[in-house]
């Protein structure tokens, strides 16, 4: 899902860069307000965690295996803003060090996975968690959000490719979204199991959305 250079037209990747720079600076401001100077080490180490977690292969149907993307996982554990920063950091390192995703396309990749995937996924999770309530609400929210975040991010890729004239929307969108509706099931199962484990051993580490009156909760 990491778009390489050359797939997007300048009329797509320039606005995508601007959008993701704006989004990320907002996230950085929000997180810095809560974490202050603790932010750098904590975000750094958790970014390395997501990076490492993506390397673990899970056995999926048949002989195939898949790995975690981790957007919703990061958002549920760290909150939407810190989660988006972590995913952006991972994407940047993957681009510069492993050439997984292009330099000009990095803005679009951040837009798809950090902003649409992670923060969008978090909103879905938050909604379900509030409606259902309790631990069951958390698990159900995580499951749906993890699945939806993959589908949303893939649809983002399809739309960007279509705007660039690289592939027609009426074919690319159903194809990308369809494939990721299947892949998303794996992401949902894995993310749920991980959150289930954290809920059992350290429930305090699940990010609590700040209450309106409390405002400044610990991240």
């Amino acid at each position: 899902m990491h778009i390489p250079d050359g797939f997007l037209s300048p009329s797509t990747w320039v606005p995508a860069w601007l959008l993701s720079i704006g989004g990320m600076s907002y996230c950085l401001r929000r997180v810095a307000r809560i974490l202050k100077e603790k932010m750098v080490p904590l975000m750094g180490v958790t970014s390395a965690f997501i990076f490492a977690a993506q390397m673990l292969n899970f056995p999926i149907a048949g002989g195939t295996s898949g790995h975690l993307i981790g957007g919703v996982l990061a958002a549920v554990l760290l909150g939407p803003f810190a989660g988006a920063i972590v995913i952006t950091t991972v994407l940047t390192v993957q681009c510069v060090v492993f050439q997984d995703g292009g330099l000009t396309a990095l803005g679009a990749n951040i837009l798809n996975m950090s902003i649409v995937g992670t923060m969008g996924g978090y909103l879905i999770y938050l909604g379900l968690r509030k409606v259902i309530g309790g631990n069951r609400g958390i698990i159900a929210g995580v499951a749906v959000a993890a699945w939806a975040s993959e589908v949303l991010a893939a649809s983002g890729v399809a739309v960007e490719l279509a705007i660039s004239g690289t592939s027609p929307l009426r074919v690319a969108l159903p194809a990308m979204a369809g494939v990721h509706m299947l892949l998303g099931l794996g992401e949902a199962i894995i993310t749920c199991s991980i959150i289930g484990f954290v809920l059992k051993v350290r429930p305090d580490l699940i990010y609590q959305p700040p209450l309106p009156e409390a405002g400044q909760e610990e991240e």
Binding site: A52, L77, I190, S193, I194, F197, R202
Partner: peptide, 16 residues
Amino acid sequence: IKILANIVGMLFLRSY
């Protein structure tokens, strides 16, 4: 899958 997920969860706790 469940054990691998526990490993990732454990890794998160240790990283944090």
